[in-house]
């Protein structure tokens, strides 16, 4: 039986949430979306997600905080950062906080899907070991 991977999407752009949810659910993932960092962290504290897809805003502070929080509460979580503010500094900061991928906006749904599937495969492998 194929395991259902749980994904959290955090972005204050509602369209991003809706499109990603729609798309990834179709591909067989379970997706929950949030538009504020606080709500996302409340949920992360109660529930384990496999993958976190989060936006990084210009000031960056809130997004980084969520990435750290996620890492602390479920340390095997894989974090993908999506940002319209793609500079080397923000990417570095995101990686330091624990992100594994950094995708610049605008991106393609297929791009995200491939990445998510790849990470899911990694998780499967890790679980087997």
């Amino acid at each position: 039986m194929k395991e259902k991977y749980e994904i959290m999407v955090l972005d204050d752009e509602p369209i991003v949430c809706k499109r990603l949810q729609n798309h990834l659910q179709k591909k067989g993932f379970s997706v929950e979306t949030f538009i504020t960092g606080q709500e996302a962290m409340d949920r992360l504290a109660q529930h384990h997600f496999h993958i976190l897809i989060t936006d990084l805003k210009m000031s960056g502070a809130e997004g980084i905080e969520v990435i750290r929080f996620a890492g602390k509460h479920s340390h095997r979580i894989k974090t993908i950062v999506i940002s319209g503010f793609a500079t080397n500094e923000t990417a570095d900061e995101a990686f330091k906080a624990g992100a594994v991928e950094f995708i610049a906006k605008p991106f393609k749904l297929s791009q995200i899907r491939k990445l998510v599937e790849q990470l899911a495969a990694e998780i499967r492998l890790e679980n087997k070991l």
Partner: peptide, 17 residues
């Protein structure tokens, strides 16, 4: 960049869908 990438991203995602 930020202010333009976000709406562009939304347009791109919706069109792709």
């Amino acid at each position: 960049a930020h202010e333009l990438n976000n709406p562009l991203n939304n347009i791109s995602l919706t069109t792709e869908t």
